[in-house]
Design a protein around this nucleic acid. Structure first.
Lengths: 106, 106
DNA sequence: TTGACATGCAGGTAAATACCTGCATATTTG
DNA sequence: CAAATATGCAGGTATTTACCTGCATGTCAA
């Protein structure tokens, strides 16, 4: 998995709103996602392309429509690789901080 | 908390490496963080400024040095607000997908 | 086929940003 | 104080990117 694409895809508030919309109702078309986003269809297409490149969204054609589905796997991977890593290190980090502060009492 | 700053701070691989370095050893100075990053000190300062603005890193002065400490809280908040949200929605998402695929057998 | 609809695709612009050089400031040490 | 060290700060440039307009393609219904 490419962490970088996932993080960069999540870096834009518009794309996070798109994921929100798909979370509320999965399988929406491009036009449905555009309504309520206050931007042109072309711009939304570009954002969806980044989300798809990051594997956060997958698509499927139904006739002349393009349906979009959210994929929670990369988000979970981000959690596994990043959040939990810092969580487990949290206690030791606080310990380091405390030690450093105490060591400063010169 | 400002989600946007956290996501944008995490969007750059250099900043993620910086967090990695701080996770390996907390409380490093600017110069220490620069060694092994293959960039100028000024550039690293800029990255650390973004990490600090996102509250992912806090700093403290010790004489002429500036010590950097990682803060795992915003990462955990990101998990709470984003990852778990999609995790809990995962089953229903799969259900929607299945229903949509089945509904397509026209 | 024709008209309406949904999307694909090719650029073009303005803003954000990642990187740098150069110089100023503050701290330690002799 | 003077030299060395650690950092702060002011720009300058090239790349990325978020947004747009305009037009082409593909699909459905009459």
């Amino acid at each position: 998995m490419e962490d970088d694409k996932v993080f960069k895809a999540l870096a834009d508030p518009t794309r996070r709103r798109m994921l929100d919309q798909l979370c509320a109702r999965n399988g929406q078309t491009l036009g449905q996602l555009c309504d309520g986003l206050d931007m042109t269809r072309q711009s939304a297409t570009q954002h969806l392309g980044l989300l798809e490149a990051a594997n956060l969204v997958s698509t499927r054609r139904r006739g002349r429509e393009r349906l979009h589905f959210i994929n929670p796997v990369p988000l979970h991977d981000v959690y596994e690789r990043w959040v939990r890593k810092f969580e487990t290190g949290r206690l030791s980090l606080l310990h380091d901080l405390k030690a450093n502060l105490e060591g400063d009492q010169t």
